[in-house]
Design a protein around this nucleic acid. Structure first.
Lengths: 168, 168
DNA sequence: TCAAGGTACATGGACGTCCACGTATCCGGT
DNA sequence: ACCGGATACGTGGACGTCCATGTACCTTGA
């Protein structure tokens, strides 16, 4: 599916060269890093979505399903899910809307907090989440496109970056 | 601005642990890599957008302005810009719509191809692009949130990943 | 010459993301 | 007991991304 190198140069290396040529050498590597991360996300997102589309899922919704699957009670308040997934609360609301319409989760009032809404995983949701996990593991996660050691290095560097951003 | 570690654990390390505990050890590292890239992109995008918002720009539009700035003629066909930026042609159309409304670029028919549209950088666009570059270099690119060596490592690993995906 | 297939763009729709705002509820201090 | 600030969600809007479709236009081959 990946069209092999067309002989074209790496666009990011090209931009880095231009940055240096304009006297921005001290910012060139950072520019390359930011741009590379953007592009890598695009690549990963496309791979994952390709696997999930036949199941009627997106990565966001899949992540929410798995979060619920791993929770003891099979249900979580929206705010808690938002924090764990590190996305805006309205993004969770959006995902819940669609998952609920698909009969995969259910909204219930939180008995412990009158303001809160619990998102509860339904059996169909759990089943689909596990099916999706099997496919993702096989088609994406087990072969992310890099040698094992490079993957570990990537995860380590990004862990530092996330920690520096206050993620944990 | 980054709230220091709240004592909470790294959510991705947590997910990795759960993956291994469910017998998916061989996919755990890849899962962590994909998730890390997604989150890193979110972090970088937020940082960049914060700098560009006061200028009325987004990163996509900024990238298009800089691409035009670096082009010899100061103008490019939409398709060419799409390939260089590695985004869908309709995304470029979208960006051009907004940049044109802001008086930063101009659409012209391509004299060399009756089907084509040239996007031409206007003086105001060039000026704003350089102003934005100065701020991005200073506030983001020169301090991307990692030690110099780690940044270089990140760029290298992602370069391999992009090459593997057929980017160049 | 001319018809068939491919290319270049624009449009409309779906999706995920965030922000700004409003409403309902909880909680802490007086 | 109560009032004011904080919290939990939902809504509506903006944005960028992609896909599917339609409409021009180019180019190739018979």
């Amino acid at each position: 599916m990946a069209p092999e190198g067309t002989g074209a140069a790496d666009p990011i290396a090209e931009a880095r060269r231009l940055w240096a040529a304009h006297g921005w050498e001290d910012a060139a590597e950072g520019m390359a890093a930011v741009t590379s991360v953007m592009r890598a996300q695009q690549i990963m997102q496309a791979r994952v979505d390709e696997v999930l589309r036949p199941l009627g899922l997106t990565f966001s919704r899949y992540e929410l399903l798995m979060l619920l699957h791993f929770s003891r009670a099979g249900s979580l308040p929206v705010t808690r899910a938002s924090r764990r997934l590190q996305v805006h609360p309205t993004s969770v609301t959006n995902a819940v809307d669609r998952l609920e319409a698909a009969g995969l989760v259910k909204r219930c009032p939180d008995p412990a907090d009158g303001r809160g809404t619990l998102v509860e995983l339904l059996p169909a949701g759990r089943e689909l989440a596990l099916l999706a996990t099997g496919r993702l593991n096989e088609q994406v996660f087990r072969s992310p496109g890099l040698p094992r050691r490079r993957v570990a290095s990537l995860v380590g560097v990004l862990r530092d970056l996330r920690r520096g951003a206050g993620d944990f």
